[in-house]
Design a protein around this nucleic acid. Structure first.
Lengths: 190, 190
DNA sequence: ACGACTGATTTCAGTCGCTGTCATCACTAG
DNA sequence: CTAGTGATGACAGCGACTGAAATCAGTCGT
């Protein structure tokens, strides 16, 4: 016999996504989520800082994928090549198996401004982290910030395409394509 | 004698910035702001959807400045030229006289994640509006989204520089410079 | 002049997000 | 057998926000 069912955190995350998707984010109270997995509201807030945060957990590993990509670029690589490497690593973070889950999660987020705000904050923090890594590599401002935000923007555009209905290409493929489009846009295409 | 002091909205905005700056956003209740100008909490929430929104009022006119800039670009202008025009119009929205006020407001926002979230949502909406305008002009996806986000990113980087201590150049000048840096970055500099 | 009307505001009650504090409770180390 | 230990529960409380009804000074039509 165990004291408590293990995996409280994961159960809360799964239940939250489920309920937010079924009833809507605002129509679901934190107590609803907690009770649906046999816990109390107080315990919910012990695991997650707030009601939104429960949907944004793997963020650290996601951010690390970007930073690993930056680190993987050759030492003297150009900013654009470094961004390319970061995008390759980051997009590999979402294999095709995760697509259905990503779709559902994104549908929930898109349906609620409060959740969009949180997602934007995470992406902004991500861009800031990438910018810092680029500065570490010798890039100066404002290029570091510009390159970092471009990187995150390309990822965002690619990600939205990846979860669009009918889309079948992998995220890395789409991201590469979007980055190429950015090159076209800036007139630096080969 | 008047029924109520006029300009309730403006008084609330001024008082909110004042109190948020003095005590901090979280240490200031909506009731504090309202009572400091002789109104009740309920009235505060009749003017502003929430406690954060009181700091984000001129957003519509700001967004319109971008859209006017897009519209001002010549019909067959390239994406980059259109973005340049949008930046020119938008940055003219902040004459040097507004710098002290912008500084104070930005300091308040930077000190609070919740306010940063709101600002990011506004900027994302702005990027979406610009992307729509670019599509109207015949640009296709993903170029429209990429160009719009680049435009907003350049503005954001320039704006941060504009309110940095010691900076004396005007926002339009800085924005032009940052856009040039983006050209350098993408290898499309003249 | 008088009553109906208007519109901004107040009052009040209530829900929900979130927090601090302390008690529980099952198990574990000594 | 006793003293932790760590996750959880129970409870009280604050502040953000909302809906509904009351107030109240001026305005308008007659």
């Amino acid at each position: 016999m165990v004291r408590w069912e293990p995996g409280a955190r994961e159960r809360l995350q799964a239940a939250a996504l489920e309920l937010y998707a079924a009833r809507g984010f605002e129509q679901t109270t934190a107590a609803d989520v907690a009770e649906s997995v046999g816990l109390t509201e107080r315990t919910f807030f012990r695991y997650f800082a707030d009601k939104r945060e429960v949907l944004f957990d793997g963020q650290d590993r996601f951010e690390q994928a970007f930073l690993d990509g930056v680190a993987a670029a050759a030492d003297g690589a150009s900013a654009i090549d470094t961004v390319t490497a970061a995008l390759r690593h980051a997009s590999a973070f979402f294999p095709d198996e995760r697509r259905p889950w990503s779709r559902q999660r994104q549908a929930v987020i898109s349906a609620n401004p409060g959740l969009q705000e949180r997602e934007l904050l995470k992406m902004a923090a991500l861009a800031e982290a990438v910018a810092g890594a680029l500065r570490e590599r010798g890039l100066v401002e404002p290029q570091a910030s510009l390159a970092a935000h471009a990187c995150v923007t390309v990822f965002g555009v690619a990600f939205r395409q990846w979860i669009a209905v009918g889309e079948e290409r992998s995220l890395p493929d789409i991201a590469r394509g979007v980055l190429d489009e950015l090159r076209v846009l800036t007139g630096s295409a080969p």
